[in-house]
Structures are given as C-alpha cells and as structure tokens.
C-alpha cells in the first residue's frame, strides 16, 4: 500500500501530541515540590487543623459568610472547642498577614484562580518566612 508511510507518520504525530501532558511534565524544569508558605503570625493554631484548612478553607469561608451576613451569627466554635469570630479580616488575616507569600504562592502552584483580593483588601504584612 502506497499510503502506509503517511498513515504511520500521522499516527506517530497523533501519539506525540496526545502524550503532551506526560512529556511536557517530564521535560519541565520547574520545581515540582509543593510551595513553601509563609507561616502564620500566631502559632497558637488555626481555626481547624492545617490539613483540613488546606482542603476546605474556601468552604469554611463561604459558610462563615452565610452565617454572619444572612443568619447574624458572629462566632464559630471549632472542633477543638475554641471560639472564633467569623471574619476574614478580623480573624484569618490577623495571622495570615501576607497574601503573596501565603495565598498566592499555593494558588499559583495549584493553578487555581484566586479572586478574593479583587474586593477584599489583601494583607501585605511582613510575612514571617519559615
């Protein structure tokens, strides 16, 4: 068959293109290790434990907003029994006081768009480098 070389070449090209995510990741020179985040100012501990917060902080913030703005409830009791005021500015940002070194660094690594600081005033404090 006279078309065999073309078909084989086409299939080869297709495979190379289809495998783009694999070889581009292998060829990438970027550092694949997770980003090092600025430590919180207060070492007494976050609202919930770190792993839970890393996975669910957006859910927590959404639930807080609904409680405060719609239901008029201001305080949150953590699973550890500690009471917190449900406030991004008043609670979270008092410790996580550097959005670049904390929020942005991880969101960039995870390629998740961060829209909070379009309205909320981003904290630019002296993030304590670890």
């Amino acid at each position: 068959m006279s078309d065999r070389p073309r078909i084989v070449a086409g299939l080869g090209l297709f495979l190379v293109l289809a495998a783009y995510p694999v070889w581009s990741a292998l060829a990438s020179t970027g550092d694949p290790s997770p980003p090092v985040l600025a430590r919180a100012q207060d070492s007494a501990g976050c609202v919930e434990d770190t792993l839970y917060m890393a996975a669910h902080h957006a859910d927590v913030l959404n639930a807080w907003r609904t409680s405060v703005v719609r239901d008029g409830e201001r305080f949150y009791t953590s699973t550890a029994g500690r009471q917190w005021e449900m406030s991004l500015t008043g609670t979270c940002l008092q410790c996580h006081d550097d959005s670049q070194a904390f929020c942005e660094r991880c969101h960039t690594y995870a390629q998740v768009e961060l829209t909070c600081w379009g309205c909320h005033v981003a904290p630019e404090g002296q993030g304590a480098e670890p």
């Binding site: 500015t89 379009g118 309205c119 005033v121």
Partner: peptide, 11 residues
C-alpha cells in the same frame, strides 16, 4: 496605597 478602610471594595 491601601484603601482607607478594611471594608471590602466592590468589583
């Protein structure tokens, strides 16, 4: 350069 209040600006 920060807004005068902590209150979120709008978008």
């Amino acid at each position: 350069g920060k807004p005068v209040s902590d209150y979120p600006t709008r978008t």
